[in-house]
């Protein structure tokens, strides 16, 4: 289809779509007036039922843990596919890499920030089910801390720090641990992914039963997934491609 016919066609259908969405939105409760029953119920029962103070984390890793399982596998599949597409076509012929960072103060400040950022990420993971945070958010921060090594120092140091074989194992291992925990409940005669550990004291790091374990499994997978993606795309810049 030519660009000239595409635009009018889009404008007509977009106007229709906008009208339809506007009609749908007009039927929603006014902003700030929503009284969905599930959220209200959860806000009242989670503390007693799961001893978890972060209700969002309890939804993600327990009440709707099944959805998160699907999402974990989707994350795994998307990252595996990305690695497959990029690795397959790459010529193993690294270009002479010139590191763009020449200034010593930038290096020093950047590298000094690495442990701070990683520690912050681990903190966000560890307390994810008590205060705002969680495996997804903290895992991303940890991966960004590792990326700082590339930004502040050099590509070779980043590769040495995150060898592909190790990262691959963690990526698969995180997803596998999530599935194993879900299946583990079945072995004990419980429902799939039922919370099977003692709930602990409210507000303690050991509270929430199997929520902390699922949280850490997610954190490991997300960290490894992002490190792997960064590594693949960085490699893409470094490696000479042969046309054709």
């Amino acid at each position: 289809m030519s660009a000239r016919t595409r635009l009018p066609l889009f404008l007509v259908s977009a106007a229709g779509l906008a009208a339809l969405l506007g009609f749908g939105v007009a039927g929603l409760p006014a902003f700030g007036d929503y009284h969905g029953p599930y959220g209200l119920v959860l806000n009242h029962v989670v503390l007693a039922q799961r001893h978890t103070t972060n209700v969002v984390a309890a939804v993600v890793f327990d009440y709707r843990g099944f959805d998160t399982l699907g999402e974990e596998l989707m994350l795994f599949a998307a990252v595996a596919a990305t690695a497959l597409i990029l690795r397959e076509a790459r010529e193993e012929e690294a270009r002479q890499v010139v590191d763009s960072v020449q200034s010593e103060p930038v290096r020093a400040a950047g590298l000094a920030a690495v442990p701070v950022v990683i520690l912050l990420g681990l903190f966000v993971v560890a307390f994810g089910y008590l205060t705002p945070g969680g495996g997804f958010q903290g895992g991303t921060v940890v991966a960004l801390g590792l990326l700082l090594v590339y930004l502040a120092a050099e590509h070779r140091a980043y590769r040495r720090l995150t060898p592909t074989q190790v990262v691959d194992v963690f990526e698969g291992g995180g997803a596998a641990a999530f599935v194993a925990l879900a299946l583990g409940a079945l072995l004990g005669g419980l429902a799939f992914q039922q919370n099977f550990l003692p709930l602990g004291r409210i507000g303690a790091l050991t509270s929430g039963g199997s929520i902390p374990l699922l949280n850490w499994a997610t954190a490991i997978e997300v960290t490894a997934a992002f490190v792997l993606l960064f590594g693949e795309f960085l490699e893409e810049v470094m490696v000479e491609r042969r046309p054709g």
Binding site: G36, G39, V59, D67, T68, E71, L75, A81, I85
Partner: peptide, 29 residues
């Protein structure tokens, strides 16, 4: 506020990022 939609958004963001990476890899190809 409602925790269920916030959990959904969290899922949404993660899927969005990985699909973004996958599509960029296809663009490279």
């Amino acid at each position: 506020t409602d925790p269920v939609v916030q959990a959904l958004t969290l899922t949404d963001v993660v899927v969005s990022v990985t699909v973004l990476a996958l599509l960029l890899a296809v663009a490279v190809q």
